[in-house]
Design a protein around this nucleic acid. Structure first.
Length: 556
RNA sequence: UGGGGCGUCGUCUAAUGGUAGGACACCUGGUUUUGGUCCAGGCAGUUGGGGUUCGAGUCCCUACGCCCCAGCCA
């Protein structure tokens, strides 16, 4: 391919190119990724991370990892740890320590005093339901708080008392004095501070008033000298307020730009809902391999590269859309196909006896580690009179296009020999218990020099030498493209999203499988050791994604 | 006639006013010691209606459709 794709270009990079051209920010580019530590990051956040850090890389700028920790009720240290891990795992770096909104609480407080002094903010005694009643509706204007015209000195005194802890939760708020008639609800005297006597994960009990998002976020961006403050579409309505605060204070003023968040079919992306899956035990925690969390994808066997590639592929726009999860799966296959070592593993074994093969003999054969990469070399595998093949690689009564094993037919055992089925042995229930074949000694290595055509090639494992492992086959967590479309998404959980396979027979080389490596089980899919439950005595492999299967497609 | 956004193949995404292109999905065929990969090909789109223009996905008008907003959440 001779066309090198420009490292991500979209409507945001166009704005930046423009800004660099006009020297709006002195050709400086500084973004930030500002998660709230109230849950684990998911693939939607990955899009934002790739965007923000990617832009910094592209322009030789910076991107801050900043925790937007302004709500002590929801935030926990466990989440900041996981977020740091996830961003690092994706391969992005930031300068020094991660930043925290809570670092700026004192500064924000001072700015609030300034706003009060300007006559632009006031302490309001209304309770939250009263504020709600007076805010008006989408179509009708709100009414002004009776406390709106308190004197500056009274506001100052009251606000300081709020901070000092003289009031109960919810008793008072600090509000911006903007316009109760404004068509944009966000501008109807929004709350800047609420009273919360709660322990904060970083500041402990130092504060009992906490800034609201709109007040805090612009200041965080301003303090950090962010140039482009990139957020999702639902904040479009908040931009006038973002601008109002920074304009009123006459401080450094970044530009907020909104883009559409990622939606995936067969997936839910809301942190609140993912938390429910965790809390109600529908999944094995935030890192369950079926979860769209970054830690879940990691445990599933996804690679940072595949996620970044996916992120590049879906682009950045303002349309809200639903991306086909197949696109994500494809990104993984694309990455793994090139570098995953191949091994053979039989998930649902049936025994094959090669009747004309010498009893007790064990042969060592060469197997390619990766046909896509000659430098991956070869390995030794052992072959014997009895082997295992996949149960569905044999059919007694095959359809025309079936070119696997059946009575009288010849197939290739990959890297070994051609075998021909001579007899099917059944137990008293009529189930196939064993298959008898003969082999052609002249086809060692899996090739004949007489031009014979063998359509089918099967993977296999020697019954004389193998290891056993449990396999977890993962499928989509939900049955419907849009799990939230009809009622409760929990009702749409796919009962077959996890299939457990006990005692699969695997090549012995897998006994020293590394948890970091992802293997392709020939003809089956990509597998990785489960980072949580696998142990030396009980190997457990997760299927990251299956191989494309045009045979299965044909049978649909 | 509350405000703010958005409409391009089935899906995602490109196109200084100048041949509507790419990816995924789907379908053919070829190669293949993975029914994988790879290769070749195919299917398929500018929400509707007007206008400006030699020329409109792009500009204007209009209609329609979809999303977001009434937390002391972010």
């Amino acid at each position: 391919m001779n066309i090198i794709k420009d490292t991500q270009s979209n409507f945001i990079t166009k704005i930046i190119d423009d800004d660099n051209h006009t020297k709006k920010w002195d050709e400086r580019v500084h973004t930030r990724f500002p998660p709230e530590p109230n849950g684990y990051l998911h693939i939607g956040h990955a899009k934002s991370i790739c965007l923000n850090f990617g832009i910094a890389q592209k322009y030789g700028g910076k991107c801050n990892l900043r925790f937007d920790d302004t709500n002590p009720l929801k935030e926990e240290d466990e989440y900041v740890k996981s977020i740091i891990d996830d961003v690092k795992w994706l391969g992005f770096h930031w300068e020094d320590e991660p930043l925290y909104a809570s670092n700026y609480f004192e500064q924000m407080f001072d700015y609030a005093i300034e706003l009060i002094n300007q006559g632009n903010a006031y302490v309001c005694d209304l309770k939250s339901d009263e504020v709600k009643d007076q805010r008006g509706t989408l179509k009708n204007p709100g009414i002004e708080s009776p406390f709106r015209n308190r004197s500056i000195s009274e506001n100052l005194e009251l606000f300081k008392k709020m901070r000092a802890g003289d009031f109960l939760d919810g008793e008072k708020t600090l509000r911006a004095k903007i316009d109760m008639q404004h068509a944009n609800l966000n501008m109807r005297d929004p709350v800047m501070y609420r009273i919360l006597h709660a322990k904060h994960h970083r500041t402990g009990s130092k504060w009992c008033i906490y800034p609201m998002y709109d007040w805090a976020h612009g200041l965080e961006d301003s303090i950090e000298k962010i140039t482009h403050s990139i957020c999702t579409l639902e904040f479009e309505d908040h931009r006038p307020l973002y601008d109002w605060y920074l304009n009123s204070l006459e401080v450094y003023h970044p530009q907020q730009i909104e883009f559409a968040r990622l939606n995936l079919n067969y997936t839910i992306m809301s942190k609140r809902k993912l938390k429910r899956l965790v809390d109600e035990g529908h999944v094995d925690g935030w890192s369950d391999p079926r979860m769209p969390t970054i830690s879940g994808l990691k445990r599933r066997g996804y690679t940072p590269k595949s996620i970044k590639h996916f992120s590049d592929e879906i682009g950045v726009t303002k349309r809200d859309t639903v991306v086909d999860v197949a696109k994500l799966e494809n990104a993984l296959r694309e990455d793994l196909n090139k570098r995953a070592p191949r091994v053979m593993g039989v998930l649902d074994p049936i025994k094959v006896v090669i009747t004309n093969y010498p009893e007790g003999e064990i042969e060592t054969l060469d197997a390619k580690n990766n046909p896509e990469d000659e430098s991956a070399g070869t390995r030794k595998i052992s072959f014997s009179k009895e082997i295992f093949i996949e149960r569905n690689d044999f059919m007694e009564d095959p359809p025309k296009k079936y070119f696997r094993l059946s009575l009288g037919k010849e197939v290739r055992l990959k890297f070994a020999y051609y075998i021909t089925c001579t007899e099917v042995i059944k137990n008293e229930n009529g189930e196939i218990s064993e298959i008898h074949c003969t082999y052609d000694p002249k086809t060692k290595g899996g090739m004949s020099d007489d031009g014979r055509k063998v359509r089918g090639t099967l993977h296999w494992v020697s019954a004389s030498e193998y290891i056993e492992a449990d396999i977890r086959l993962y499928d989509r967590l939900f049955k419907s493209q849009n799990p939230e479309a009809s009622g409760d998404f929990v009702d749409d959980l796919n009962p077959d999203s996890l299939k457990l396979i006990k005692n699969a027979k695997l090549e012995t080389c897998l006994s020293n499988a590394e948890s970091k490596s992802i293997y392709q089980f020939e003809r089956t899919g990509y597998f990785v050791l489960d980072s949580k439950d696998s142990s030396e005595n009980n190997l457990i492999f997760n299927r990251a994604v299956s191989l494309r299967d045009s045979w299965a497609k044909l049978n649909r």
